[in-house]
């Protein structure tokens, strides 16, 4: 498979065409908007926390296939996780798309379906596309009115 075919593999194209958890979220406890000023991409993330656990994440916005698929797969990946677990998963995802997964000893199992983004690291310009939704989710969790502020540590 060429780099390009791997970047645009079927899972990513499928989530681009039929994004999961796309839409507004009634009863959201935190929301945030993310923008990539360089290209004009935009994503809004709405999150619903049940105690410290993410019970639901939805998103809307405009963007390329990579950013849309990333947001879509993220909404599924973080469901049922605590905020600390979401943070840890973002760190692993970020290591993956920046090509540092091996040196950080991150296994494919730890990433689950997110592993389809591994070839993003060979397209450094696209790292921002893949991580926009995650940065925005982190902001939405920090904006959560009912929750404890997320540690910056």
């Amino acid at each position: 498979m060429s780099d390009l075919q791997e970047l645009y593999q079927s899972v990513i194209l499928d989530h681009n065409r039929k994004p999961r958890n796309f839409g507004t979220l009634d009863g959201a406890t935190g929301t945030a908007e993310g923008k990539n000023p360089l290209c004009g991409d935009q994503v809004e993330i709405a999150v619903q926390l049940d105690g410290d656990t993410v019970s639901r994440v939805m998103f809307t916005g405009h963007g390329c296939a990579i950013s849309k698929a990333s947001a879509s797969l993220m909404t599924a990946a973080v469901q049922g996780k605590t905020r600390a677990e979401v943070d840890a998963l973002f760190d692993k995802f970020h290591a993956l798309v920046t090509g540092r997964a091996d040196e950080a000893d991150i296994t494919r199992e730890a990433l689950g379906q997110l592993v389809v983004f591994s070839s993003v690291s060979r397209f450094p310009i696209r790292v921002k596309c893949a991580s926009l939704a995650w940065h925005t989710l982190r902001a939405a969790l920090e904006n959560d009115a009912a929750g404890v502020p997320v540690s910056t540590e």
Partner: peptide
């Protein structure tokens, strides 16, 4: 096909 994906391809 979004313009950014086009540019990459």
């Amino acid at each position: 096909v979004h313009p950014h994906d086009l540019a990459t391809i």
